[in-house]
C-alpha cells in the first residue's frame, strides 16, 4: 500500500468529508490521526478507525488555538512520528448577508477555515522539510471560485486557502513537499441534508451530473494527491463538483 507507515493528520475528521478522507488514507496504509473539537468526537474517530481495522487514533484539537495545535503535534510526534501528510479539512459556516454579518461570524469562519491552515501547515513543515517529503492538502470549496450569496466569509476563507496553497507550493517545492487544494461541490453530508426540497432541486439543476457528490469521491482525490503517483502535482486546485463549475 502506497502510504504504508506514513503519519497523516486530518483535521475535522469526526464526520462527513473528513471522516471519509481519514478512512481513505488509512486504507492506503497510513497511520491516521483525525481531530475533532470535542473529546467525544476524538473518541468516536478512534473507535471508527479501530472498527475498520485501520491504524490511528482521534485527538481533540481547537484549530483556532496555537497552543492546542502545538500540543497535538507534540503528542503525534511522541506517539507515532512527525506527520508526512496534512489534510486541512476542518471548517465551519456562519452564513449571512454581508450587510447583516456580525464581526464574530466573519472572524470565526476566517480563523477556523483559513487561520487553521496557516497554523497547521507551519507546524508540520519542520518535519516535512527534514524528511524531504510531504503532502499538504487543503479542502476548499466550489464557492471559492464561483462565489455564493450569503457566504462572503466562507468564500473568502476558501479562496484564501487556494492562494495559500499556491504560495507555499513555491516555497517548499525544492524539499519534495507538494501543496494542493481540492474543491468539492455539493456533497451529501449533514450540511447539505439540512436543505429543504426546493433548495435541493434548484441546486441539482446546476449540476450536470444531476446528483450530489459522495464524501468518498472527495476522499479518493485526496488519497491520490497524498500518494507517490501525484508527486508532480503542486499548487493545484482540483475541482470535484459534478460539473457545476468549470474553471
Amino acid at each position: 500500500m502506497s502510504l504504508e507507515g506514513k503519519v497523516a493528520l486530518v483535521t475535522g475528521a469526526s464526520r462527513g468529508i473528513g471522516q471519509a478522507i481519514a478512512h481513505a488514507l488509512a486504507a492506503q496504509g497510513a497511520i491516521v490521526v483525525g481531530t475533532a473539537t470535542s473529546d467525544s468526537g476524538a473518541q468516536s474517530i478512534a473507535e471508527k478507525l479501530a472498527a475498520a481495522g485501520f491504524q490511528g487514533t482521534g485527538m481533540k484539537l481547537d484549530v483556532r488555538d496555537p497552543a492546542s495545535v502545538a500540543e497535538v503535534l507534540e503528542r503525534i510526534a511522541a506517539d507515532y512520528a512527525a506527520p508526512a501528510i496534512l489534510v486541512n479539512n476542518a471548517g465551519i459556516t456562519a452564513d449571512n448577508l454581508l450587510m447583516r454579518m456580525k464581526d464574530d461570524e466573519w472572524d470565526d469562519v476566517i480563523s477556523t477555515n483559513l487561520g487553521s491552515v496557516y497554523r497547521l501547515s507551519k507546524a508540520v513543515l519542520r518535519g516535512m522539510t527534514k524528511a524531504r517529503w510531504g503532502r499538504i492538502i487543503c479542502i476548499s470549496s466550489v464557492v471559492a471560485g464561483m462565489g455564493n450569496g450569503g457566504q462572503s466569509n466562507y468564500a473568502a476563507a476558501k479562496a484564501g486557502m487556494e492562494g495559500f496553497a499556491r504560495a507555499l507550493a513555491r516555497e517548499v517545492g525544492s524539499r519534495g513537499i507538494t501543496v494542493n487544494a481540492v474543491a468539492p461541490g455539493f456533497i451529501d453530508t449533514d450540511m447539505t441534508r439540512a436543505l429543504n426540497d426546493n433548495q435541493r432541486s434548484v441546486m441539482l439543476e446546476q449540476i450536470p451530473l444531476g446528483r450530489l457528490g459522495q464524501a468518498e469521491e472527495i476522499a479518493a482525490v485526496v488519497a491520490f494527491l497524498a500518494g507517490e503517483p501525484a508527486g508532480y502535482i503542486t499548487g493545484a486546485t482540483i475541482p470535484v463538483n459534478g460539473g457545476m463549475f468549470m474553471g
Binding site: R126, T129, K130, E171, V172, S174
Partner: peptide
C-alpha cells in the same frame, strides 16, 4: 544557500 536553506540551517 537560499532563504529556505538558511531557515533549515538554523533549525
Amino acid at each position: 544557500a537560499d532563504s529556505l536553506d538558511t531557515v533549515e540551517l538554523v533549525m
